[in-house]
C-alpha cells in the first residue's frame, strides 16, 4: 500500500472556499506542503491565515466550506475523493486530531472513559469492552493522568482544562495514528499548563512515532517542538523550511514581521514591532502578493504579480519563500525563545 516515493501527507495546491452572504471567502488559496513520516511540522500564521481550515480539510471536517482545487494525499490516496466509509476508517485511526478547546471538544454527558473506549472500538470491532476499558486506562496513565482508573469514570466537567487536553491526547493516540493533527492544542490553556501539554505532545509523538502537524500562532511552540515550519498568510504558504533556518534567516517579510513582533528574553529590546495593518479581507484579497499592503519592501511588481514559492538560500535543507525580493532581507534574530 505504502508509496514510499512520496511523503506521508502531501497537500497540493489546496483551495477551500466558503460561500457567505457577502461573497465567496477564499479561506485557503493554493496551500501546498508535505509531511514526512515521523516529522513534526508547525504551521504558523495569524487568525484567518487558513491554517486551521487547512488542517480540518485533511480529514474532511470543514462543514460549510467547499474544496475547489487541489488534493490532499495520504499514503498516496486522495482523501478528498475517498468514499465516506473509507475516510471514516482513517479518521481517528491512521490520522487523529487534537482540538483547540478541550472545554468544548469532549462530549459533556459521556464519561471520559467511554469516549476513549469509543475511539478504540470504532476501529477495532473485535476489541471486547473489558479490554478496551483496560487499554483506555493505560492510555490515561500514559498521558500522565494520576489515578487513571478513577478518572476513567468521570465526566469532562470534573477535569481541569489541562487534564481534559491530556484526555484528548490519550484519545488521539489510542489507535496509534501515523499522523497526528494538533490544532492550537495549547491556545485555550493557562500558560502554566501549556508547557506540560507541550511536553506531553512530545512524549505522545515519541510513543507513537506519528508525524505531527502542529497548527499554532505561537512561534515559541514551533521553535520548541517542530522540525519544519510552514508560514501561512491569507490562505497561502508564504515561507517554509526547517525551523532553525526559517527562524534565523527568514526570507519572507511577513515571517520577519512575526519574529520582530515577539517579546524577547535573550536580548535587550526597548519596544516590540508589530506588523502594521491587519490581514487582508479574504472576500477580496489584494492582487499580486497578498502581503504587499503591509510590506516594507513592497513595490509595483508586488502589486500585480503573485509570487510563487521558490527555493532560496544555500543550505542543505530546502527553504522556500513566496517573495519577489527575498534576497534583500538581511538575516534577523538568532533564535526564538519562549
Amino acid at each position: 500500500m505504502d508509496d514510499n516515493t512520496e511523503p506521508l501527507l502531501v497537500i497540493d495546491d489546496l483551495a477551500v472556499e466558503f460561500r457567505t452572504d457577502e461573497g465567496v471567502v477564499k479561506a485557503v488559496d493554493g496551500a501546498a506542503f508535505t509531511i514526512d513520516r515521523g516529522e513534526i511540522v508547525g504551521v504558523v500564521g495569524e487568525s484567518g491565515s487558513g491554517k486551521s481550515v487547512t488542517a480540518m480539510s485533511i480529514l474532511g471536517l470543514v462543514k460549510s466550506g467547499r474544496r475547489v482545487r487541489g488534493a490532499i494525499r495520504f499514503r498516496g490516496r486522495d482523501l478528498g475523493t475517498l468514499p465516506a466509509k473509507e475516510l471514516r476508517s482513517i479518521r481517528g485511526a491512521e490520522i487523529a486530531m487534537i482540538f483547540q478547546d478541550p472545554m468544548t471538544a469532549l462530549n459533556p454527558v459521556v464519561t471520559i472513559g467511554r469516549q476513549i473506549v469509543e475511539a478504540l472500538r470504532l476501529h477495532d470491532k473485535r476489541l471486547s469492552k473489558a479490554a478496551a476499558r483496560d487499554r483506555a486506562i493505560e492510555l490515561l496513565a500514559l498521558v500522565g493522568m494520576p489515578d487513571a482508573a478513577a478518572r476513567f469514570k468521570q465526566f469532562p466537567h470534573e477535569f481541569s482544562g489541562g487534564m481534559r487536553q491530556r484526555a484528548m491526547i490519550a484519545m488521539a493516540i489510542a489507535n496509534g495514528p501515523s499522523l497526528l493533527i494538533a490544532d492550537e492544542p495549547t491556545t485555550a490553556l493557562d500558560v502554566t499548563i501549556q508547557a506540560q501539554v507541550l511536553d506531553l505532545l512530545k512524549v505522545a509523538q515519541q510513543e507513537t512515532q506519528a508525524a505531527t502537524l502542529l497548527i499554532t500562532h505561537d512561534l515559541g511552540v514551533v521553535a520548541e517542538l517542530a522540525d519544519r515550519v510552514v508560514v501561512m498568510y491569507a490562505g497561502r504558504v508564504v515561507e517554509q523550511g526547517d525551523v532553525t533556518t526559517v527562524f534565523t534567516a527568514p526570507r519572507h517579510p511577513y515571517t520577519v514581521g512575526l519574529l520582530e513582533s515577539l517579546p524577547r528574553l535573550d536580548r535587550d529590546v526597548d519596544e516590540l514591532h508589530p506588523i502594521p495593518g491587519s490581514p487582508p479581507s479574504l472576500l477580496a484579497p489584494p492582487p499580486g502578493c497578498p502581503f504587499h499592503p503591509r510590506c516594507p519592501l513592497a513595490r509595483d511588481r508586488c502589486r500585480t504579480e503573485r509570487p510563487e514559492l521558490r527555493v532560496v538560500g544555500n543550505g542543505t535543507a530546502v527553504h522556500r519563500t513566496a517573495c519577489h525580493f527575498a534576497e534583500e532581507l538581511a538575516a534577523v534574530p538568532t533564535e526564538v525563545t519562549r
Partner: peptide
C-alpha cells in the same frame, strides 16, 4: 450539531448516525 464535541466524534471516525444519536441527540434532549 455545530458543537465542538460533535466534530471530535466525527474526527474519531464515528458514522453520521452514531454521531447524531450517541452524541448530539443526547445533549439536545436535555
Amino acid at each position: 450539531l455545530s458543537a465542538d464535541y460533535v466534530r471530535t466524534a466525527e474526527a474519531k471516525g464515528g458514522s453520521p448516525a452514531r454521531v447524531v444519536t450517541r452524541h448530539a441527540l443526547r445533549n439536545s434532549l436535555i
